[in-house]
């Protein structure tokens, strides 16, 4: 018997592609000063968001984003059958504490900054597998909660390296439903392998993740027999300026022709004068770009076919101290207008 739902090595095809029926994104103040201000649903006035710690602020950010996405379809949280969610903090507490309030059956995901794609494809499998009809995929990241966990205390006077990226404060939530509605559909997804070419610099995650993105994109195109210009836009999650420059060179090396129309959420997120060095990063980077400008452009018909390749660097401060290199991963989800 031929497996109809899997094609090639790593790609899953959805028979009845789930539809993205509603989405929302809330971002931090700095992200709100960037080029996409009008495309975000809501911009936080400050990083505390009315809470007493960065972690609480992040959990509230995620919770409010899910509520906002759900309310756009006039649903209540209890109308949602499954929440697939993740974030960057230890034990993904932002997600589980948000789920505690929302009281939606909950699956936690950790894929570092690749979590948005991981959550979307898991949600889509749950729907196309016939188990659920209405699932929310959501992620969050918060600059200061990530900074204190992965790098330095926020008040310490340190100089950031030129290749370092700025963790985006932002959350994105997408409501996926069994395909009876119009709207962008999640047609197929490629689950990435971990690629580690020995990069160790925790201040340069773009370089560590670029080979994983290159591998996943190449595998996706060959699994689906699609030319690279099949997509109006291939967008990676958060390679930043350094990583996306590397990926372009890897495209050439891997023979990905014609050169795809390619961009990166980390590069797009901020203006050059915002002093973020190599661009944005974090789960919230690809999530808020997707749930803000990118899906808006799909609805407007400016983008018909989008391949989101969210990238993650799966290290921890402990493994970095122990001298381990950084394992990179990338998952691709294809979004297509009907």
């Amino acid at each position: 018997m031929v497996n109809q739902k899997k094609q090639g090595l790593q790609t899953i095809i959805f028979e009845e592609p789930p539809v993205l029926t509603a989405w929302a994104t809330i971002v931090g103040p700095k992200e709100g000063e960037g080029p996409w201000r009008s495309d975000f649903d809501w911009i936080m006035e400050d990083y505390e968001f009315g809470e007493s710690s960065w972690e609480k602020a992040e959990s509230k950010l995620l919770r409010e984003t899910v509520k906002l996405a759900v309310s756009k379809k006039n649903y209540q949280p209890e109308d949602i059958e499954l929440l697939v969610s993740g974030d960057l903090l230890n034990q993904i507490t932002s997600s589980s504490f948000a789920a505690r309030e929302l009281q939606i059956p909950f699956l936690g995901m950790y894929g570092a900054c690749s979590t948005m794609a991981e959550a979307l494809l898991t949600a889509a499998m749950a729907i196309d597998g016939g188990y659920f009809e209405r699932v929310v995929a959501a992620v969050s990241s918060h600059h200061y909660s990530a900074e204190r966990q992965f790098r330095f205390p926020t008040e310490q006077g340190v100089q950031r390296s030129m290749s370092s990226q700025w963790t985006v404060t932002g959350a994105g939530a997408v409501v996926l439903e069994k395909g009876i509605y119009g709207g962008p559909r999640l047609t197929c997804a490629t689950i990435g392998k971990i690629i580690d070419l020995g990069q160790k610099d925790a201040n340069d995650l773009g370089s560590a993740m670029a080979p994983a993105a290159a591998d996943t994109i190449k595998t996706h195109l060959s699994d689906t027999n699609r030319p690279s210009d099949y997509y109006d836009l291939i967008v990676t999650g958060d390679l930043g300026k350094v990583g996306s420059a590397l990926l372009k060179q890897l495209f050439i090396k891997n023979g990905v022709v014609p050169e795809p129309n390619y961009s990166d959420c980390g590069v797009l997120m901020f203006n050059d004068n915002q002093d973020v060095h190599a661009g944005g990063s974090g789960c919230g980077c690809s999530a808020s770009m997707l749930c803000g400008p990118l899906l808006k452009k799909m609805v407007q018909g400016k983008i018909e076919r989008l391949l989101l390749v969210a990238t993650g660097a799966l290290m921890s401060p402990t493994t970095s101290f122990q001298g381990e290199s950084i394992p990179g991963i990338a998952h691709a989800v294809a979004l297509e207008n009907p």
Binding site: M162, L197, Q249
Partner: peptide, 18 residues
């Protein structure tokens, strides 16, 4: 070898500190 080749590529691409 692959890792070394990539390392070379990275050090070419990486911006130098000012």
């Amino acid at each position: 070898i692959e890792a070394q080749e990539y390392e070379d590529l990275v050090s070419q691409t990486k911006p130098k500190p000012t």
